[in-house]
Design a binder for these strands. Structure first.
Lengths: 268, 268
DNA sequence: GAACGTTGTGACTATGAGAGTGACAACAAT
DNA sequence: ATTGTTGTCACTCTCATAGTCACAACGTTC
């Protein structure tokens, strides 16, 4: 039963990685029997026997399955580590080709109007984290960062923080004391504090169903605020660039109010 | 024109990475204009204007595009490095989940009949390379390896070779002198030679259209032979395990004949 | 070697996702 | 007020893929 669930998960992941349903089922099925014939596989996987052959051929071409050309044919899945390694290789290959293709295609007339009153939105923890790290890396004067959740303190983030110019002021807040001490240890250069976000939590102006994720202000000119939807655990962010940006201005004032009284004595 | 081609390539790669046609086109289009509206994008990408919105939403959810919620909306692609980094993260995530799911699901009754007269086939350079490295890593007595093409001498292969037990005998042949010297430098522990494969090339028993790729014999009990189809550049391999395996026996004899007269004086 | 189940191939239908199009109300700009 | 733009829906068309069937080749059994 639990095995069934993990199997189902494995199948889904494989489909996300580009395999078709039959192919995914076949691979997962094969991963549990060391070797088998089309008929056996069909019974395990609920894939019509006559379509096993197609699926296996594709898998073989991808380097995920081996075929013994006997009669009847025997199929065997490549060991897990080998399979994932192969998938990884394929993927790296593609991303690299993408990178090259894109970088060679980029130059096109652009309407650089340099608007500064912009507010952009983005989604997805990975993308947001990358953007945050990027912003931090480009900081020259000041970084103000508030983390609302332990999981956001990733190694990459720590690296970015430790790589900024020593002249740059680092102000890092955390939602809990334990998180603050972790930050303090990881980024010795930073001034850390436990604050708050109470001022955000308590204001009823945002939908109740949002948890503050991170808050980042770089050089007082770029701001990134993310929220985490508790149910789906999805992260959403808005991101403002430019000095005279309204959002940035507001955020500066919010931070000034929220951060300076660093020890709000109200115990929650 | 050439920009058009690379753009097309980028689109294809993105589709392989899981994006739909419209999404891929939108992203590539956006990668060349710094920012744009739905109408502009539609003109660049040939995607129907009314469908731009769907595509962008998906891209946004994946962290590849930012949206400025003004009127009209402005769209902007995340910088290339950020995008690829995000894609990489997503992928790593999936592969890891796959690995966990698979390893937790593997235990199922298995018919370990331990046949030794097996010959398996596999395809794909990545998969074959991984299998080869795996085999080498498990070697305890002897590794005989012949490389038919420069491109097969990868860093991973070198690592595997240098990590075998020093007691293990390493015999590595190469198709050309330059390749041999590269091998010699990379794997000092190995006895290298320039041979031959003439004995394979000249025999008309295999379809003319095959170039020998690699040939690997480990501990005289496992053999891997790969061929490269010159046109498609696809690599195919057969792999035999087990001591008494017929293929292994044949290969041993072939190698004994082919390798010992190391310097076939015939100059090609 | 006759009879039966198994195996592999190819061709077929059905379904659903996604490509492509159009109608239309909300909006902005003279 | 008029006109073009913008965003949303609802729709059709096409094709990949899930799912089924007929059948010939093969192997196994008695």
């Amino acid at each position: 039963m639990s095995t069934d669930d993990t199997a189902k998960e494995a199948i889904e992941v494989l489909q996300h990685l580009g395999l078709k349903e039959y192919e995914a089922k076949c691979f997962v099925g094969l991963s549990r029997v060391s070797s088998g014939t089309a008929k056996q596989l069909s019974e395990i996987t609920d894939v019509p026997r006559t379509r096993i052959y197609d699926a296996i051929r594709v898998l073989e071409a991808q380097g995920l399955v081996e075929i013994q050309h006997s009669s009847p044919q025997q199929f065997r899945a490549v060991p897990v580590e080998e399979a994932t390694e192969t998938l990884r290789d394929q993927y790296e290959d593609r991303v690299e080709r993408l990178q090259r293709a894109l970088s060679r295609t980029e130059p096109v007339e652009s309407n650089e109007e340099d608007r500064v009153q912009e507010v952009w939105s983005m989604s997805g923890t990975d993308a947001i984290a990358n953007r945050a790290n990027q912003l931090i890396s480009n900081a020259t004067e000041e970084v103000v960062l508030v983390l609302g959740d332990d999981s956001l303190l990733t190694d990459e983030l720590v690296d970015s923080l430790n790589e900024v110019d020593p002249e740059t002021e680092l102000l890092i807040g955390a939602a809990t004391e334990s998180l603050e001490s972790r930050v303090h240890r990881a980024v010795p250069n930073a001034t850390t504090f436990v604050s708050g976000l109470e001022w955000l939590r308590n204001e009823g102006n945002v939908s109740e169903n949002l948890a503050i994720g991170r808050l980042l202000l770089v050089d007082r000119s770029s701001i990134l605020v993310s929220t985490i939807v508790p149910d789906t655990h999805e992260e959403q962010a808005i991101f403002g660039g430019g000095f005279r940006n309204g959002l940035v201005a507001i955020s500066r004032r919010l931070l000034a109010q929220g951060l300076l009284p660093q020890h709000d004595p109200r115990p929650e």
